[in-house]
């Protein structure tokens, strides 16, 4: 059973994380969530990134959303920026691809070339 009483413990845990995070410039994962993205399956992809980041306890990674990136036929589109590296655009992303992208790119800083827009076009 979930209740509002759980929130106090979550608050304490989160405060610790927020303080740690202040010391880093983090990686950003941005998912396109306009009508085109949503219709193509962006919501489960975004939730998969959130869950994967949470599961691996990656403190300096933020998951965010944006509108239409302008290439609707390639949705769901995800852009990942690792500090000090070029932004990488992944296209036609499915939830099954998310653990590999997080492990290889977000954690180890090696983009998964075969999922990128460069490989698709």
């Amino acid at each position: 059973m979930k209740s509002f009483a759980d929130l106090e413990a979550i608050r304490q845990k989160t405060l610790d994380k927020v303080n740690l995070r202040r010391e880093h410039e983090g990686t950003r994962i941005v998912v396109g969530m306009a009508t085109c993205g949503i219709a193509a399956g962006a919501r489960p992809v975004m939730l998969a990134f959130l869950d994967e980041v949470s599961k691996r306890n990656l403190l300096d990674v933020t998951v965010a959303q944006t509108g239409c990136i302008g290439m609707c036929r390639l949705e769901p589109i995800v852009e990942i920026s690792v500090p000090g590296q070029d932004k990488v655009t992944y296209v036609k992303v499915a939830p099954e691809m998310v653990p590999r992208i997080v492990q290889e790119h977000v954690v180890n800083h090696n983009p998964v070339d075969e999922y990128t827009i460069g490989a698709a076009e």
Partner: peptide
């Protein structure tokens, strides 16, 4: 209940 924390935290979501 969270006393001003951002709701955009994975655990809270």
């Amino acid at each position: 209940a969270l006393g001003g924390l951002s709701l955009a935290e994975p655990d809270i979501l």
